[in-house]
Amino acid sequence: MTTSDPSAPVVLDQVSVPIGGRPVLRDVDLTVRSGEVVTLLGPNGSGKSTLVRAVTGLLPHTRGTVRLFGTPIEQFRDWPRLGFVPQRSSAAGGVPATVREVVASGRVGRRRLLRPSGAADRVAVESALEVVGLVDRASYGVSQLSGGQQQRVLIARALAGEPDLLVLDEPTAGVDLPNQQALADALGRLKARGATILLVAHEIGPMMPLIDRSVVMRDGRVAYDGPPLTQEVASHTHHAHDHPADGPGSHDHVPHVASPLDFERRNRS
């Protein structure tokens, strides 16, 4: 895919990310345009979370460029424009905290040091709680909530920062259908406000109507990028190209490399 708009919220150009010396993402091209809702699909271990972590700056990439809103990620400083919902992290810590406190911590990127929270902070927190439908639970301890409700708390926390780009890693995992619907409604309201959303999902379910584009990952590569797919279709997508060097059933796309050490040695020679 050719990069059309270099100032789009997310532009990945030939990005490779290794973890512990092993290439996990390989030559990934991805553009998420302003106002788009893109789902990232793919089997377990295909590199969806790695891609998300590269986009959010949590993992460094070794090749290619990652641009956020047109700025290379190394120089990007406007982090409050980015909202992040990590995969499967519980909203509860070692000390009790209320739903409102956790959601308010989403403002932290926009707050100045040593200043009390202002009216704008409170308004943003209330409206984030409203979007996810947890206003009546705001003073509950987060550990009193169900898993799906905690997931909504984490989404509200990301929303409280009033991001222009929202990156969610499997917010629907282990969430029942009514809660998925509530989530889809929340994302729908955000989309209507003009937010850009990059969403990793296993079950698309009620989010289907929101989605503009699907990207399917396989073995750290983009295997499909086009009109929305459901997960069932996605799991039957085949590789865009074949690798004759691979043996049947082999999933390692770097031929004749048995270990990272091997890989480095080859690179040097």
Binding site: W79, P80, S89, A97, V108
Partner: peptide, 15 residues
Amino acid sequence: FAVASDPDFARVAGL
């Protein structure tokens, strides 16, 4: 509080 409860989130928020 943000850093202690979710370091990944705090980092993406720019802390």
